[in-house]
Nucleic acid binder design. Structure first.
Lengths: 141, 141
DNA sequence: TTTGCTTAGTTACTTTAAGTAACTTGATTT
DNA sequence: AAATCAAGTTACTTAAAGTAACTAAGCAAA
């Protein structure tokens, strides 16, 4: 598959954007004072991405159903990620004190806004996944 | 800060996109046969993102200079990530057998193409980082 | 001629994060 | 009195990440 050529003009615009961002990413000394790295690390975590995708597809999901969808995740990690995603404002947790307990999760508007950007990235990855796999096996030799 | 409202129409389009992707992400049974998760996991890894950003900004960087830029990364992990990013086709490694040895890294066109999508995401995160931090401290109570 | 200096890593070791599996809670049915 | 349910939590194991010292190769100075 052909990759769209990247013009020097585009590269320049990218460099400008990065320069602007570096004010936040690289404040010379205190790396933990800069929240971007920390926020990106969570929001682009492998499990968080899948959680957000499934909550973007199903308007609301309960804990165990979500766990089945996000194939391979453990209760422990799912519970952990859901808490952080909720804390950051991406998702909403609604608890119904029935017996047995019922808990529903859904995206907030903020989460939807993020998901749209995330999708652009995952779509790119999907589009070029075969290229990447081909690169890998070529490199292995 | 106000979040742009997400219309039902947008949500529907997002759902459509995700549905299309689920064919790749969720092939019901073999989760390791699906490359998207694996590719996303690497390409959105916290260190890989920073490496790609710096290589997007500086046309070429040598190992130790890159290590200084990507604040906090160890030689071990940097070396590891560079190898995988090279294998997947995002970056190029040029070795000059001088003494001391000189090795230069730069983005491929493929890497540039990915970086453009990645930047849209990091820009979103930058834009809303204060909102997220505010959400966090509100949730902490 | 041995000591030091350089870069781009690698190796052995420690710490932290992730994964596994069994357990908890509490009203309701068997 | 025991089993059942969902939504987690806990204690334990394994894998990944971080730390710090080391290596290679050749040249320059002592």
């Amino acid at each position: 598959m052909e990759i769209e050529t990247v013009t020097d003009n585009q590269k320049l615009r990218v460099a400008k954007k990065i320069e602007k961002m570096f004010g936040h990413i690289d404040p010379k000394l205190p790396p933990e004072m800069c929240p971007i790295r920390d926020i990106m690390a969570l929001a682009s975590d492998k499990w968080s991405i899948l959680i957000l995708l499934y909550l973007g597809y199903f308007p609301t999901l309960r804990f165990n159903r979500l766990k089945k969808k996000v194939y391979g995740i453990s209760s422990k990690i799912l519970s952990e990620r859901l808490k952080t995603l909720e804390a950051d404002g991406y998702i909403l947790r609604k608890m119904y004190p029935e017996v047995p307990i019922r808990v529903e999760y859904n995206l907030t508007d903020f989460g939807h806004s993020y998901l749209q950007k995330l999708l652009d990235l995952t779509e790119w990855v999907q589009k070029y996944s075969e290229t990447i796999l081909a690169n890998r096996s070529k490199f292995a030799k």
